[in-house]
Amino acid sequence: MIGDTTSAIGLLATILTFSRIDLERRMRDKDKERIGEMIMAKQRPLSPHLMIYKPQLTTIMSIMHRMTGGALAMGSLLVVWWIVALASGAEYYAFVQTIIGHWMGQLVIFGFSVAVFYHLSNGIRHLLWDFGYNLSIEGVHRSGYVVLVMTLVLTALTWVSVWASVWTN
């Protein structure tokens, strides 16, 4: 009885999975056809289609600014938590400190620091654009590489200092 039910559910799941895959494949084919027709009719789609568009330094770095901005906004919850812990007294603060000290806590803070340094560096790149600098193709690429190097350097500098600081304090 249990065996029958299990195999019936298994069969149903298999059918559902395959029909879903097939549906998705057909939809992709239909999308391509539709976009093809629009191009032929010179009613071209308005924005670059991200699934077709080749990934480039410019596009990747642009979406990374948005992703790090969003991550920082989420991460601000952790900052608030730390400050509230500090205001709540020694006992609760000690509890939060053990979480911060755990390797998973350290990993999250490391990721947060990378997001801060990328968003800071690329934010300065954004502001320079607003002032009219680096607007040529070479300027955009050159400043893009500078941002990547700055992110690496600032992250490395910070964590080396953290180890040195914890060592001496």
Partner: peptide, 25 residues
């Protein structure tokens, strides 16, 4: 964004140099 540049830089430096203490610190 312009205001945040010096604020973030100061905060990172200040936090890093105070790292490793307890509640009192």
């Amino acid at each position: 964004a312009m205001g945040l540049i010096p604020l973030v830089i100061y905060m990172v430096i200040s936090l890093v140099s105070a790292m490793g203490g307890d509640y009192i610190n």
